[in-house]
Design a protein around this nucleic acid. Structure first.
Lengths: 333, 333
DNA sequence: GGGCTGTGTCGAAGCGCTTCGATTTGACCG
DNA sequence: CGGTCAAATCGAAGCGCTTCGACACAGCCC
């Protein structure tokens, strides 16, 4: 192993001088600096992990810890893409730590001095993984909310705001009775369904409109069931638009969707929760955290409203929807 | 600053014991371990980054070298996803080396003993990167063909077979005059266009049918132009189906497309070139190469034919196509 | 020339991590 | 009960990094 003392001997200076060259903590003349740098390269000295104040060998990798089991790959792929792009802007490569079963892979990644910080995608194992990272003192940001309040820096999509935004938009248009087909509250997305519903309900109350929510898993034809049971409903909020095709044309529709950067456009007015924004924000938070900042414990990425012609004043939708199907509306940002 | 000695004092053990708890280099009883961990948490001790558990680690990371500029992100994302999944099956994490400008990032990754091998996505810089990897003696597989014949192990989608497969399928159905709207031959995909055309032309000759090819970039309405100039054409091969919407309904259509694992289905009979297969094959090749095998210099991943009702006997398509739009045909694998 | 100041480098003390032989502990056995 | 052994833990020496006061030297002012 090459030490700072070896470099010092080779360069004919004191060990502390090498130290100051590497860290930049004291000014060193250009001549000496060059000589020391040459010796470092020639001997192949690798400063240990703590010794990285100077840009001599900064951490150049960000790790993303994610399961590959039990995830929806296209969604994860979009998130990974945006994270890779954002990491690149910080001149960081991205290590995908995909070990599903054990912690060994993560432990090894955590031991690498190349890795400057960890993004952890929320999952059943996330808590355990965050604990390990905490124990070895690595910066970590959780993409999700399960760790909020435990000293973990979290970032997530603001489903609550999305639910509220839908209601606000429809209420602004004059709808007084709004139905909501929520996401299935099963397993992992249960938090999503709960938070969206909370936003929907609170906004309906605030705006003084009638909000009727229905979990999608409860019935075979939830749309029909909801509209039959509540004939006063003139507008629907749907959680992802796959089921919205069945909605009668005289009902206004707002879809809560992932963003469209991936190319799948929707014919509906949508409240989009951008995985791309989420990834970017997560990277920014991690970079800040690793740099010594103390970011807020929970950051929520707000939704974007994309207006198309799938909703209008109550009872007036029919005329416009057919053009909307092929109109290809424009984004708002 | 909290030190290992503080933790030791707090937990009532020797500093070295704390050290062994943190690193796992010697066995520590569960009782002591818990006590030390509690002290670590309570005092907020942050072990320095160099403190890792194992020294003699086998390589556990595969690197993927790819540009993020000038690429079509969704396509790359699908490829990365399949590579990550395939790598996981070999118990490898995936390092995305996305440095666009300089070689420093790649050089650092190549210097890490964690990284067992490199996949290089073809691009303008790929040659330079492969040369560097060759110089430092690292295993590498090129996804693309630009290095074929230079001692580089290459793997690519078989566009030539895809072009031929389209002709064969249409000829089998009785079409005698087949048009081809090729991909734009600009920049990077020029090789793709050239190879697809070569397959198309060779198959047309072999089958004794009239093949009429047109580069898409040459005209504003290439479909119309082709059909007007060649009224005998009864079937079209299109390179990705975005332009195929304009094709008259009495013309059969086969689309050459990426695979549909990502969820975007096409209404057309398609010859699919699966990025997922490509990624998986690339990983397998790299693992084999790193393990000492000598794989073939060029591996081509064959296309899959997915039959839908967008082509039939000449002149008979109209009746079926409208159902095909909503039928959601089935895969063949 | 003598004092002053600022820069660049040194050297030794100090700190925290790391290692390894020594020591303790407790289980097991005759 | 004493002996044996392995596991668990300790303690001190060692290593490499880190800090800080000291020192050398040049330039500058008087």
């Amino acid at each position: 192993m090459v030490t700072i003392a070896d470099v010092a001997r080779h360069a004919g200076v004191a060990p502390s001088t090498v130290f100051y060259v590497v860290t930049g903590k004291r000014p060193i003349s250009a001549e000496t600096r060059v000589r020391v740098r040459d010796s470092i390269v020639e001997l192949g000295y690798r400063p240990p992990a703590g010794l990285r104040s100077l840009r001599l060998d900064p951490p150049d990798v960000m790790a993303l810890v994610l399961p590959l089991r039990d995830v929806h790959l296209p969604v994860v792929a979009r998130l990974v893409t945006s994270i890779a792009v954002a990491a690149r802007e910080h001149e960081l490569d991205l290590l995908l730590v995909t070990a599903d079963r054990d912690l060994a892979g993560l432990r090894r990644a955590a031991g690498s001095d190349r890795v400057g910080g960890f993004l952890v995608l929320d999952s059943e194992d996330a808590g355990e993984r965050l604990r390990l990272l905490g124990e070895v003192g690595r910066s970590a940001v959780l993409i999700g909310q399960s760790g909020a309040g435990n000293g973990v820096t979290c970032v997530d999509l603001d489903f609550e705001a999305a639910g509220a935004r839908c209601v606000d938009h429809l209420a602004d248009l004059g709808h007084r009775s709004i139905g909501f087909l929520n996401a299935p509250a099963a397993g992992h997305s249960s938090g999503v369904a709960r938070r969206t519903l909370a936003g929907f309900t609170a906004a309906a109350m605030r705006r003084g409109v009638v909000g009727t929510a229905l979990g999608r898993e409860s019935l075979v034809h939830p749309t029909t069931a909801l509209l039959c049971a509540h004939p006063a409903v003139t507008a629907l909020v749907v959680h992802d638009d796959s089921a919205a095709e069945q909605v009668p044309r005289d009902i206004a529709v707002v879809a809560i969707r992932p963003d469209e950067a991936a190319g799948q456009t929707s014919p509906f007015t949508s409240v989009q929760l951008s995985e791309s924004d989420l990834g970017r924000r997560a990277v920014d938070l991690l970079v800040a955290l690793a740099g010594g900042a103390v970011p807020p414990s929970l950051t929520l990425v707000p939704p974007h409203l994309v207006q198309r012609e799938s909703c209008s004043l109550p009872g007036r939708r029919t005329a416009v929807v057919s053009t909307a199907r092929f109109g290809g509306g424009r984004h708002d940002r």
